[in-house]
Design a binder for these strands. Structure first.
Lengths: 210, 210, 210, 210
DNA sequence: TATGAATGAGGCTTCATTCAT
DNA sequence: AATGAATGAAGCCTCATTCAT
C-alpha cells in the first residue's frame, strides 16, 4: 500500500468515525434529551475518549448543527430524486411524509436550532444550514409556481403556500409527540392520511370563501 | 381595619406578588430563554430576595407549569365568552388568532412542557394542565360536531379536525418565530389572514379529492 | 378575676406553650432527625406561628439544650426518689434501665450536645446542663463509695465505676438502635437483662484478674 | 516505558489521589465536624479543584461511607493478623484497644452512618459495609464460642457477649470524648486499663449473681 | 403578643472544555 | 491522534433568623 493510499484510508476512517459520533449523538439526544446527554456519554457509547470528540468537533453546539445539516441534506436528496417526476403531487406528499415521519427528530432539531441561535454559536454553520434550506426552498417554489400557473393553486405569493405547508407539517410533528393529544386519536394511520390529504389540498383554488 | 380585613389584604398582596413574579419570569423567559434566566435574576428584577421566590413556588419547574396553566386558563376564558355566540366561525377564528398571536409565548410553553414532562416534575400540576385542556377540548368538539351535523364539515371523527387545527396553529406559531422563514414573507398581516382562512376551511366538506 | 390572677394565668399558659413546643420538637426530632425538622415544622405542628417560637427560645440550639436539660432533670428525679431506698442495687438498676429504655432519645441528645458544643452555642445553658449532671454524679458517687466501703466493689476511684457504667449504658443505647446488630439478637428482653446484670456486677470485687 | 506501564502508573496515581482526598476529608471531619466541612474545603486542602472530587466520588455521602469502609477493613486486618494467635485474650484486648484508641474517629463514623442511613443514600456501599462487619463478627464469634466451650465464659448465646463488648467499647469511645466526663478522670491510662480489663472479663463464668 | 413574609449566605452538584501525556 | 483527569463557573435549593404589622 502506498503512502497515499494509507493517508486516504486514514482520512476515510476519520470521516467514518465522525459519522459514527453523530449517529450515536442523535440516538442519545432523541432518547434522553440533549440536556441530559453529556459529551462523555457520547464518547463512552462510541467507545472513544472524551477528548477525541473534540478532535472532530469544536463544541457540543457544532454537533447540534451538523446533525441539523445532515437532516436538511437528506431533504435536499429527496427533492433531487423527485425533481424529474411528472407527478405534480408526489413532491408535496413526500415532503410531508418525510417531515412528519420522524417527529421526534424534527422536534429535536427545532429545539436545537433555537438554542444555538440564541447563543449566537457557530454562525458559519448556521449560515450554511440556511443556505441549504434556501436551496430546498427554490425547488418547492418552482413546483408551487407551476401549479399556480396551471390554475390548480390559488394565486397568492408562492411563499404563502410553502409556509402554510411548513406550518402544518411542523405542527403535525409536534402533535404526534404530544402525549396529551396522542391518546385521543385511535387510528393513527387513518389520521395521518387525512392530515396529508388536507396538507396537499389546503391551498387549492376555489377552496377559500369567495 | 379589622383583623379579618388585614388578613384578607395580606392574602391579596401575597397573590399579587405571586402574579408579579410570574409576570417577570415570563418576560425574562421570552426575552432570554428559560435556561439563561436564573431564579436569582427573577428575584432581582422583582426586587425581592431569592428565598422569597421559594415561598411562592416549590421549584423553578413549578413556575414553568404555572405559567402554562395561566395560558390555558386564558384560552378557557375565550371559549367561555364566545360560547353563546351564534356565529359558527367566530370560535375557530378566535382560537387561531389567540394561539398564533403570541407565538413566542406559545413556543416557550411548548418547550417547557416537554422539559418538565421529561423530568417527571410536578406531576399534579401537569395533571391539572391536562384537565383544563381536556375541558377546552370539549368546547371545540361541540362546535365541530355541530358543524358536521350541519353538513359543513367533512364527516370524520371530530378529533381529526381539532388535531389538524391544533397542528396548523402550532406550526404557524413556530413559523412566525423562525428567523429563516420570517424574512421571506413581506406582508405578514396578509399572510396571517390567508393562514387563518385556510385553517377555518381546511376541513370543509367537499374539499378533499373525491 | 383580679389582674394578678390574670397575669398569673397568662404566665402559666406561656409556660404551658413552652412545654408543648418542646414536646412537639422532641417527637419530630426523634421521628425525622433534627436536621430534617425545621423550626417551621415545629410551629405548624404546635399550631402557632414561626415567630412565636422565637418568643420562647432564642435559637434552635436553645431548644436542643432545653430538651437535654429536661432529660437530665428527669434523671435527677429518679435519683431523688430512690435516694432513701435501702436497696443498694436498685439505684444502679434504675439508672441503667432509664438510660437504656429510650435509646433513640438518648442518642439524639448525644448528637445534639456534640453539635451545640462544637458551635459554642448557648454556653450558659450548657453550663447549667453540666451542673445538673454534676449533681446527679454526686448521688452516684455516694452510692459507689458506700459499696466500696462495704467491700462489695473493687477499691478504685469511684469515678472509674461511674464512667464504666456510663459507657456501658451509652453503648447499650447505641446498640439497641443499630439496625445491624439489632437483627442478630432474638430475645431482646433476655439480652437486656443479661446486660443490666453485667452492668451491675462488672465492677464487683474479685472479678478482675488477680 | 510501555503504554501498559504508563496506564498502570496512571491508575496508581488515581488511587493515590483518592486516598489523599479521603485522608484530608477525615482530618477535616474530625477537626471541624462533617457539617462544617464543605466539599470545596476538602478540595482546597488537597490542592485540587472542586470538580475533581466528583471524579472520584459521586457524592459527599459516598465519601462518608468510604471512610467507614476503610475503618472496618482495618478492623478486619487486625482480626486477620491475630487469627492464628494462641492467646485467647489477645484478640479481645486488641479489639477493645482499637475501638477505644481513636474515639473521635469512631464517633464520627457512628454519626455518619446514622446520617447516611437516614437519607437512604449509597445503599450498595452501606450493604458492603455491613457485609464486612458480618465477616468481622464471624471471627469474634468463633473466639467467643471457643472460650465458652473451655468453660471460661458464661454459656449464653455468643452474640450476647459480642454485643455487650460492642456496647462497652462504643460507650467507652463516647466517654473519652465527652468533655464533661473527661475532666473528672485524672489518670486516663490507668482508667483505660481498668476499662479494658472489665471488658475482657465482664462475661466470665461465675461473675453474675448465682 | 403573635405572626409569617422576607431574607441571603451557603451547600452540593453538573458538565463543557482544556491540556499534559 | 487519542486520552481522560482536572477544572471552576454556574445553578438550584434550604432554612435559621429577623422584623414590620
Amino acid at each position: 500500500m502506498t503512502d497515499l493510499e494509507k493517508a486516504t484510508r486514514r482520512v476515510h476512517e476519520f470521516r467514518q468515525r465522525e459519522r459514527e459520533i453523530l449517529d450515536v449523538a442523535l440516538t442519545l439526544f432523541l432518547d434522553q434529551g440533549e440536556d441530559r446527554v453529556t459529551v462523555e456519554m457520547i464518547a463512552d457509547k462510541v467507545g472513544i475518549g472524551k477528548g477525541t470528540i473534540y478532535k472532530h468537533f469544536e463544541t457540543k453546539n457544532e454537533i447540534y448543527v451538523l446533525l441539523m445539516l445532515r437532516y436538511e441534506e437528506e431533504l435536499a436528496d429527496i427533492f433531487e430524486r423527485i425533481q424529474e417526476s411528472d407527478d405534480k403531487e408526489t413532491l408535496a406528499r413526500e415532503y410531508f411524509r418525510f417531515r412528519i415521519s420522524d417527529p421526534k427528530r424534527y422536534q429535536l432539531f427545532d429545539r436545537l436550532e433555537q438554542k444555538v441561535i440564541k447563543e449566537h454559536a457557530v454562525p458559519e454553520l448556521i449560515e450554511k444550514l440556511h443556505r441549504i434550506r434556501d436551496a430546498n426552498f427554490v425547488h418547492l417554489r418552482r413546483i408551487i409556481e407551476a401549479r399556480i400557473e396551471e390554475g390548480n393553486l390559488e394565486d397568492v405569493p408562492p411563499i404563502y403556500h410553502i409556509c402554510t405547508a411548513w406550518a402544518l407539517a411542523h405542527g403535525a410533528a409536534a402533535l404526534m409527540e404530544s402525549p396529551f393529544y396522542q391518546r385521543l386519536i385511535e387510528d393513527k394511520d387513518d389520521f395521518v392520511d387525512f392530515l396529508i390529504d388536507i396538507g396537499i389540498r389546503m391551498g387549492n383554488r376555489g377552496q377559500r370563501g369567495k
